[in-house]
Amino acid sequence: MNEDRSIPRHIAIIMDGNGRWAKERGLPRREGHRAGAESVRECVEACKQLGVEYLTLYAFSSENWNRPAAEVTALMALLEKFLEEKSSELMKQNVRLKAIGHLDRLPDRTRRKLDKAIERTSGNTSLTLVLALSYGAREEIVEAARSLAADAVAGKIDPAKIDNASFAARLYTAEIPDPDLLVRTSGELRVSNFLLWQISYAEIVIFKKFWPDFRQEDLREAAQEYARRHRRFGGL
């Protein structure tokens, strides 16, 4: 564990602006998503250099299933390509891959490739890369509440003893520390149903540039801004 408190232990990123980046260049939206893959590589490298332990990327939201079928298909194909091409690189960099979300909604082939990459990298220790796929924070919270309610009805737990820790243990991120820093690209000022419980005390840094233009120096700039802030967690 990195003991330097000026370095965020966990960075979460809302990777926004792929479509607008492509539109500005007269390209199909899928080209924006494809260009964004290089930004992922840059961020992984920067996190490793800084000593960040967890990097969570909002790769595909539960609402993204409502996009045109052709775009969803292209996104799944890009995810498969990323998993195929980057697994060896993740192994070389000692990066562990994890995923959170409604993974059962992914196409069978995509899920198989994801599971294979997760298993292959499970022993790596330098950085944990978490992909939020088919993810929605409200759904996550409802599922956690439903799980606790079922156990209470069955007499397995005392409802009066449910606390923050027992609730957090039912979330997808039960084994992952809460983000210290939330980064969003494209200049939008919203959290878009992303890690609503987990980012309660996260510092937030917004970049106007679109995700495909995000580079290592930008992530370092966000980390430097984080280091300048005094985290009070509701206190003085």
Rank of each mutant, 00 (worst) to 15 (best):
D16T: 06
E221A: 13
R29H: 02
Q216E: 15
K209V: 00
C47S: 14
F214E: 01
E3G: 06
F210C: 08
A174L: 04
A150Y: 05
M91I: 05
L75Y: 01
W197Q: 05
A169K: 15
D158I: 04
S134I: 04
S39F: 00
E53V: 01
D178N: 12
V205G: 07
N124Y: 03
H33C: 12
S61T: 10
I176Q: 04
N18H: 10
F60G: 05
R170F: 12
E71F: 10
A74L: 05
L75K: 00
P28K: 01
F82A: 12
D104G: 11
A77F: 03
L83E: 07
L103P: 14
A168C: 13
E143C: 08
Y172V: 09
T128D: 06
Y201M: 08
G101D: 09
A168Y: 14
R34A: 00
E38W: 07
A22K: 00
Y135E: 04
I176V: 03
A99P: 12
E80R: 15
R112N: 13
P159V: 02
D213H: 02
V191H: 13
V40T: 02
S192V: 05
A154C: 10
G235P: 09
L79F: 12
K86D: 14
R109E: 14
V40C: 03
E175C: 06
I199S: 09
E31S: 07
T73I: 08
L78G: 01
W21Y: 00
K48M: 09
S166L: 02
K86M: 11
Y201F: 14
P28N: 02
P212Q: 00
G234M: 06
S87E: 13
L103F: 12
E89G: 07
L171Y: 06
D180A: 05
Y135M: 03
R111N: 11
V142K: 11
A145T: 11
L181P: 09
E53R: 00
E89S: 11
R41W: 01
Y201S: 13
E24D: 14
S39H: 00
Q216I: 08
D16A: 08
E143S: 05
P177N: 12
N64H: 01
V52D: 07
G26A: 03
D115E: 15
A99T: 06
S87Q: 10
E139P: 04
G26F: 00
L55K: 00
S88P: 07
L129G: 03
L195V: 02
E85F: 12
I206D: 02
A144E: 07
A12E: 12
A168E: 15
A174E: 09
K113L: 15
N94H: 10
G136S: 03
P212H: 00
P159R: 01
E31K: 05
A70P: 11
S192P: 01
K116W: 12
E3V: 13
E140G: 03
Y135R: 03
S87T: 15
A70V: 13
K86R: 14
N164F: 09
S6V: 06
R34K: 02
I11V: 15
I13L: 08
A150R: 13
T173G: 08
W65D: 05
N94R: 11
G123K: 12
R229E: 09
S186F: 03
A145W: 06
A174P: 02
E89T: 10
G235M: 11
Q224L: 15
L189R: 14
E38Y: 08
H230T: 15
K113M: 13
P179G: 04
S166Y: 02
G187P: 01
E24R: 14
A144N: 05
H10I: 01
A154K: 13
